[in-house]
């Protein structure tokens, strides 16, 4: 049995390696098989994304791209009748807007509030309130690299936001989605009465 597992695992690794090599081969041209990013602006952008893109910005990107794809996926869903399709488009758009606005705002606020209690000893100013609590969430006894500490704050803030959103999902998202769905359905002339 262990042999079989081992063989399967080896096969899986081999296929994975082959697939990766195949995909790598698809990048670039015959003349220039390897890509060099020469533009300073492009390099600065890549570096900025690595340093600054937190889960909040990621949620915003997901929301914006969701608006560009999901309504069209719903519109082309032939498995349901025309009326259900229309109302599902309204609901999808409403849900994306409600989810993105609350998701982005809560993530940002949580990351900011984590930041307030993750100060390095040198960052505490004499006029700050709650000085003792300012290092409450600081890891590694304050021996941290700036970039890594920023990512740590993003991670902790995101975890806190996920817990908060367990509640706001029902308290804000759901009623806001319902309100927006009805608004879009009314504007779009969709009969939403039976779906209320």
């Amino acid at each position: 049995m262990s042999n079989i597992n081992c063989i399967n695992f080896n096969n899986f690794s081999r296929y994975k390696e082959k697939a990766t090599q195949f995909a790598l081969g698809l990048i670039g041209t015959k003349k220039n098989p390897n890509i060099t990013i020469k533009s300073d602006k492009a390099n600065r952008t890549i570096s900025w994304i690595g340093k600054n893109l937190s889960s909040a910005e990621n949620r915003l990107i997901l929301g914006a791209t969701a608006l560009m794809t999901q309504p069209f996926i719903d519109a082309s869903n032939k498995d349901v009748d025309k009326e259900t399709r229309k109302i599902s488009i309204c609901r999808t758009v409403a849900k994306i807007i409600a989810g993105t606005v609350t998701g982005y705002t809560i993530r940002k606020l949580c990351i900011k509030s984590i930041d307030a209690f993750t100060k390095l000893p040198g960052e505490i100013k004499p006029d700050m309130k709650f000085k003792k609590l300012r290092t409450l969430l600081t890891p590694n006894n304050g021996k941290c690299l700036a970039n890594e500490l920023a990512q740590y704050k993003n991670a902790l803030g995101t975890i806190m936001a996920l817990v908060v959103m367990m509640f706001t999902n029902f308290l804000i998202d759901a009623p806001l989605t319902k309100y927006l769905t009805n608004l879009f359905a009314k504007r779009g002339g969709v009969n939403n009465e039976q779906h209320r």
Binding site: G50, N147, T158, L162, M165
Partner: peptide, 28 residues
């Protein structure tokens, strides 16, 4: 726990985004 989050996610924000994304889907 703090040190673990710092060492796991500090140098690797993409990993943090994946783990918190999975957690987000699971919690929702």
């Amino acid at each position: 726990v703090k040190d673990l989050i710092y060492t796991k996610f500090g140098p690797n924000p993409a990993k943090m985004l994946i783990v918190t994304g999975v957690l987000g889907w699971a919690l929702s």
